[in-house]
Write a protein that binds this DNA or RNA. Sequence first.
DNA 1: TCCGAACACTTTAGGCCGTATAGAGTTCAG
DNA 2: CTGAACTCTATACGGCCTAAAGTGTTCGGA
Lengths: 265, 265
Amino acid sequence: MTVYAAQGDPKRSMSLLWGRDAPDRGRRPGPKQGLSVDLIVETAISIADADGMAALSMRAVGERLGRTAMALYTYVPGKDELVDLMYDRVQAELPAEYELRDGWRAAVTARAHDMWEFHLRHPWTLQVSQARPVLGPCEYAAFETSLRILRETGLPAPMLRRTISVLYHFVRGAAQTVAEVRQAAAATGVSDEEWWYARSAVLEEVAPDFASRYPTLTWMEGEGGFQMEDETVPYLEQEALETFATGLTVILDGIETALREPGPA
Amino acid sequence: MTVYAAQGDPKRSMSLLWGRDAPDRGRRPGPKQGLSVDLIVETAISIADADGMAALSMRAVGERLGRTAMALYTYVPGKDELVDLMYDRVQAELPAEYELRDGWRAAVTARAHDMWEFHLRHPWTLQVSQARPVLGPCEYAAFETSLRILRETGLPAPMLRRTISVLYHFVRGAAQTVAEVRQAAAATGVSDEEWWYARSAVLEEVAPDFASRYPTLTWMEGEGGFQMEDETVPYLEQEALETFATGLTVILDGIETALREPGPA
DNA sequence: TCCGAACACTTTAGGCCGTATAGAGTTCAG
DNA sequence: CTGAACTCTATACGGCCTAAAGTGTTCGGA
């Protein structure tokens, strides 16, 4: 389901993204447009938020707006461009300013948490390819904000760019786990507990030599030792949150080490 | 294109994964099977390796084997199960043993590099959901190996589990960038240079106030300063490799800090 | 020896998807 | 008032996964 950025006419899609698409509507012949790009994008976002990227189809968006799928093509060149617009639009939810007086470490932590929540609010963003970025105003703004925070570290520019990538990879990866867990539960109607229970029963049958075959793994399962802090939140999500906190600390500590001992660059 | 794990009969798919599927073929009526699960899985892998997950269809696999799509359903319950089998199968390529005498840091670095190359050899693995793991013998074995290496750090079990997750998230994220860049170039026939050139020209037109709007970003672009070491490797891939190296160092340094100053756990 | 059940495989079909194309109906400039 | 421009619908094509039905092969047992 990974969605790749639109590859059509750059002029058209960039104009749409930057809100400079045909500013003189209304002075032309033909019926007035009953919808708007904004409305379509908002509708598409709410569908993707609720039911995931797989449920996002031109037909679904059109139907929710009382039109056919083809009606949308008057507003947007195609589905890829629509996803680009959705992606850029939601980025605007991320805060633009962070308190820097408590040092970069506190600000980066806050930023990472905001991004974590952002991705969980819009899990489909994790399925938008990062290879050829959307290049919209909000994505640039979000990157600018991250950059401004991390510039406080004093790292040289190339190192800065890579450090941001590392943080982004981590936050996206950690959020993706939770997103996929939730998606799997919602899509199949089977909870993680049920799923795991069914699987592990079969596993014992099919791999009776598990313990001797995977000793370290068996050891770790035995150690276990995770305390459920909140019974209402599924185990896997609590574990993911712990992983997120741990990982963030590890990376921030690593950045501090890099600041103390500048590398070969 | 994210592919979720098969949700069908656990018994059937686990038997397939662990190679315990109906061991008494040949003593039953009906024509002999002309294909085998292994052959199908291998063919599917080679299609996905070459043309990506999007090109993997039951029709494509069947056609390459001289059958229709439906013929495959005698061997495999469905496409999801086929992907599970593919995923588990390729994991076997990862080395099982690492030299631990030079310390855990060297071994983790080697492991991370092996995983990086693994993911770039099979980019489609990055589109297989991690939420409900495949639970096949090779995936367990690969995890066992990672675990054995990182156990050398002496971290307690819960911390160990999270640290592995952090590393996995990072390696997957970093590899994904390269994979998507290559995929985009292959699928569209447009190189990154061409793509970027077309985009940046339009960007200037559509956002003439770019420099004042995104000052930090503009500053970083000005600093630039990345030396192309090898002209035959695209810029973005070289940058990604640098990011990978940097990120790995950062994370390993962070782990060392955690070892010196055990956390609240 | 021959039948019927089990099986491999093909054909067809149904319900999704994105979108090309053609046409119907509305609105404006001249 | 006309014709062009425009919005939106209907239809259709080619793709996807896979359910269901049909064809022909192969075997165990009578």
